[in-house]
């Protein structure tokens, strides 16, 4: 059973159809890289998966359970959505760390708030908080940021901020971690450290969807590459095929343009 199954997903903004019949599946431990030119709908797709946009039709299933069905309004109530979101994590292009919290607090905040809903919160408060703290520190350590735990976002470089954001997303142990161009807001010399961290996650079989313009990286890290154009998935397959032997004209065209620059 696939971790994620997206069927006939559609999304329009007013008259403009931005996603047209998106179908794909993602297996546990797999990494999908999504490539495509600007405006092809990559961000919109990730935002739909994370319920930041409401699709106009289609279904999204996680672990065999339909979590969104365009034809069934009962899958779309506010409170339900909040919990369904937790299947996904999202790392934004612009990090969106909370500026008033330290790196460590950024990583812990959501988990602490969720923990308050646990039935044993009152009795085990101390132990739960200690556990969250330990895990958050461990995550930061994994990101190479153990020494930066008490720094505020504005005291960190872009690359460090993005790694904190990755730790923050991982803290909730999502089934699927999504990245929207995680390095495109970074200075070139800082992209490496973030890509290395993501590569490390891939090696540990983290299930991920990565929207990226870093073709070399996509090739190395992805099990499957989706090429999007004009709201469609034009081509998908293993990276050797999509990059080495693209079948569609539009894919060839796109890749030529990218290897050119």
């Amino acid at each position: 059973m696939s971790v994620l199954e997206v069927n006939a997903l559609r999304k329009s903004f007013g008259e403009v159809e931005v996603l047209k019949n998106i179908d794909f599946t993602l297996e546990k431990g797999e990494v999908i890289a999504i490539i495509g030119s600007s405006g092809s709908g990559k961000t919109t797709l990730l935002r739909c998966l994370n319920f930041l946009e409401k699709p106009n039709g289609g279904t999204i299933s996680v672990n065999g359970n339909v979590i969104f069905d365009g034809n069934a309004p009962e899958t779309q109530s506010e409170a339900e959505i909040r919990l369904k979101r937790l299947h996904f994590g999202l790392v934004f292009q612009s990090f969106n760390l909370f500026p008033q919290y330290t790196a460590l607090q950024n990583v812990k905040l959501a988990r602490e708030l969720l923990a308050q809903e646990r039935s044993d919160w009152k009795q085990n408060r101390k132990a739960i908080l200690a556990e969250i703290d330990a895990e958050a520190r461990h995550l930061l350590d994994q990101m190479g940021l153990a020494a930066k735990a008490d720094f505020y976002p504005h005291q960190l470089s872009g690359g460090q901020q993005q790694r904190v954001a990755i730790a923050r997303a991982l803290a909730l142990s999502p089934d699927i971690l999504c990245f929207d161009e995680p390095t495109s807001a970074l200075d070139p010399e800082l992209t490496g450290e973030v890509l290395r961290v993501i590569k490390g996650l891939a090696d540990k079989d983290t299930t991920m969807i990565i929207v990226t313009h870093e073709m070399q990286f996509a090739r190395e890290v992805a099990d499957k590459v989706l090429f999007m154009d004009g709201g469609h998935i034009v081509e998908s397959g293993p990276p050797e095929e999509v990059f080495g032997n693209p079948k569609h004209e539009r894919t060839k065209h796109f890749l030529e343009r990218y290897s050119g620059t």
């Binding site: 909040r82 919990l83 994590g89 934004f92 969106n96 909370f98 905040l109 959501a110």
Partner: peptide, 15 residues
């Protein structure tokens, strides 16, 4: 306050 702040909270399952 940038919308990204709110969206980051939403994605993290906050009310």
């Amino acid at each position: 306050v940038p919308v990204g702040q709110q969206e980051a909270g939403q994605v993290l399952g906050m009310t």
